[in-house]
Nucleic acid binder design. Structure first.
Length: 610
RNA sequence: GCGGGCGUAGCUCAGUGGAUAGAGCAACGGUCUUCUAAACCGUCGGUCGGGCGUUCGAGUCGCCCCGCCCGCGCCA
């Protein structure tokens, strides 16, 4: 795909080559915004190689630069050691408006990623739990990365690696066996499951404390401690009690029974999966999230034995005295980890290895991208090292798109037990409610159903944008006002600008228009918007290469700001000339289109009215 | 201890070797008889955590410190 700025850069490169600058010394950069140029060639390196002073070289190149016919280069001038290039504004305007109008919803999209097949692993909520603010990160960042990679031309397969297996699920079954199955429906049922899980975890913790205490006394007894000797009988009873199968053992036992197909365990397991998916789907729809597959950890159970055997056979892992399968010293400074528990049960790691093997066989990806939190970094490093060592994914790029942790307003980790957990559904409802209050105030004339629709797009857009507008590696401290902000650098600001454009276009449609004369678009505010539109394709490429939705968010925000200057400076419907009015109308329509495309990559909808 | 991340305006953040380091929020002051005031304009605000180095050029790269966060075998 060759967009206008690509041709501009190509023309500059050709001109420099023709002037005798060797290709390897040509470096074209975007100047700082305060420099009155669109692209620049810093001559330092070339000047040194050619044995002249940089300003002299810049001047010589500027004097002799040949601009071909039809070129997008408007002006070339030396500024000290820099050779600055400005766009031919009339040609740029014509080209960009043509591109946006012609491509519509695919303006900004590319074919540079063609040939890539990328599996993106994201969202991955746990079964029998509600999604909370922590999950929104993987879900939203993941979906946006998927959208961006698709726009880049890659074939993308999204997979929701549900947490539906392992000892954690064994604990849920054990808890249900202990307390009985919740009778509630929907989200309330998930909350009830969480409650059981939390209570059961407390029992496990209590058992562990008991075991520790028994161990302490046993040791004191061994050492001939006087008090211990006196309480000998009590201690042996304590030790015996601690040695009994406890709640943790039961959780592990249930995870094993589940793995081995126990009908009772499987039936309960299936019910909770169905329940969780039903509840989560509603949230996904609100967030504009669609994930192609949801195989889940359980799907890989039949492949695990072979994975373990192969790791053992290849000498990458060994079985220790207790029966656990250990992976050791794959790389310097890479901590040892397990592939199988000593009781024969499998682990997160085991299933992740099988998952890679399956994806490679089934989907033949060129890349697998994990959208996972920073705390999982070590796990992924171990996983990647292991599959390389076993030879499962030798020529496949394995990528960790990482993001920081969400903390509460005091910097404390979110936890159900602390009572500071923020769940996704109430968060979205709150965002909707706040947006609705503003809609009612400023768009009271619209009918209530449309007000609801706008509030949903705006409120949820605000929440999504809050998660996508910055580099995701930073930790986030929860701040409701910022998360639900409806002004400043926020989705509602951008949506509002789009709505203004559409309002103008709507009003204009009522009256007949003249033929547009886009050569009249010469106001600086008009040109600023046109240049912004020209930059979308580059933003898409950069975002795709960096897995960075915030690059798109930044483009949207800058474009919206440029638009607001246009709105201030250049009346559209009351333009001085009918031909100018039509030209501005075309520009405004193109801007709304490009912004809508950008927001779509972020899973944010742009309402017609606000 | 080892490994990873972060440190830029009061707060939240851009800035991926180039020119005078930029936004938003907050604060203060202005702008609705004129295409939507969820907006716009202005003011205030910086030893880029500290040091040394590499380079024609460092917020950006390397090394050493300081501070905060995270992770490091039978959870996921």
């Amino acid at each position: 795909m060759h967009y206008s700025l690509d041709r501009f850069e190509a023309h500059i490169r050709d001109g420099l080559l023709a002037a005798g600058v060797p290709a390897e010394l040509i470096e074209i950069v975007a100047p700082k915004p305060n420099i009155p140029a669109d692209l620049a060639f810093p001559t330092f390196r070339a000047a040194r190689a050619l044995g002249v002073a940089p300003p002299a070289l810049a001047q010589r190149l500027a004097d002799g630069f040949v601009v071909g016919g039809g070129s997008l280069i408007g002006a070339v001038h030396a500024a000290g050691p820099f050779l600055n290039f400005s766009l031919d504004q009339a040609r740029l305007t014509a080209t960009v408006l043509d591109e946006v109008t012609r491509l519509g919803g695919t303006y900004g999209h590319d074919d540079a990623g063609a040939g890539e097949v990328i599996v993106v692993d994201y969202s991955a909520p746990n079964i029998a739990k509600r999604m909370h603010v922590g999950h929104i990160r993987s879900t939203i960042i993941g979906q946006s990365v998927v959208n961006i990679l698709r726009a880049y031309g890659c074939r993308v397969i999204g997979d929701n690696h549900l947490g539906d297996w392992g000892k954690q699920f064994g604990a849920i079954i054990a808890a249900v066996m202990h307390y009985g199955e919740p009778a509630e429906h929907g989200e309330a049922a998930l909350a009830a499951f969480e409650e059981l899980y939390t209570r059961y975890s407390a029992l496990i913790k209590h058992d562990r404390e008991l075991r520790d205490e028994a161990e302490r006394w046993r040791r004191r007894l061994e050492e001939g401690d006087a008090e211990a000797l006196e309480r000998r009988d009590w201690i042996s009873a304590l030790v015996a009690q601690a040695a009994e199968p406890n709640h943790d053992d039961q959780a592990r036992a249930w995870s094993l029974r589940l793995e081995r197909g126990d009908p009772q365990a499987r039936a309960l397991w299936q019910r909770t999966i169905d329940l969780t998916i039903e509840v989560n789907d509603r949230l996904y729809r609100r967030l504009g999230v669609r994930i192609d597959h949801a195989y889940g950890e359980s799907f890989y159970e039949p492949m695990l034995a072979a994975v373990i055997d192969e790791a053992l056979a290849k000498g990458v892992a060994y079985r220790d005295d207790a029966g656990a399968v250990v992976v050791d010293e794959l790389e310097p400074n890479l901590p040892t980890f397990l592939l199988q528990r000593s009781d024969g049960g499998t682990l997160y790691m085991t299933r992740d290895v099988a998952t890679i093997q399956f994806r490679v066989r089934q989907m033949q990806p060129t890349r697998i991208v994990y959208v996972l939190g920073i705390p999982q970094e070590l796990h992924l490093r171990q996983l990647f090292a292991l599959v390389r060592a076993v030879g499962y994914a030798t020529d496949i790029e394995l990528v960790h798109v990482k993001f920081g942790t969400v903390f509460d307003q005091h910097g404390q980790a979110l936890s159900t037990r602390r009572g500071n957990m923020v769940y996704l559904e109430p968060l979205l409802d709150e965002a909707h409610a706040r947006a609705l209050a503003v809609v009612r105030q400023s768009s009271g004339e619209l009918d209530p159903a449309e007000q609801e629709e706008i509030a949903e797009a705006v409120g949820i857009g605000a929440v999504i944008y809050n998660d996508l507008y910055q580099d995701p590696r930073r930790d986030i401290r929860l701040d409701w006002d910022r998360m639900l902000a409806l002004d400043g650098n926020s989705a509602p600001y951008i949506q509002y600008m789009v709505a203004r454009c559409r309002s103008i276009v709507r009003r204009a449609a009522a009256e007949p228009g003249a033929v547009a004369d886009i050569s009249q678009l010469t106001h600086p505010s008009e040109l600023a918007v046109i240049k912004q539109l020209a930059r979308l394709p580059r933003a898409v490429r950069e975002a795709a290469q960096r897995y960075a939705p915030f690059v798109i968010a930044e483009w949207c925000y800058d474009t919206a700001r440029a638009l607001s200057a246009l709105y201030r400076d250049c009346p559209v419907l009351r333009a001085e000339q009918p031909e100018l009015r039509s030209a501005r109308l075309q520009l405004v329509a193109a801007t709304a289109q490009a912004l809508t495309n950008g927001l779509a990559l972020l899973c944010i909808r742009a309402p017609q009215r606000m």
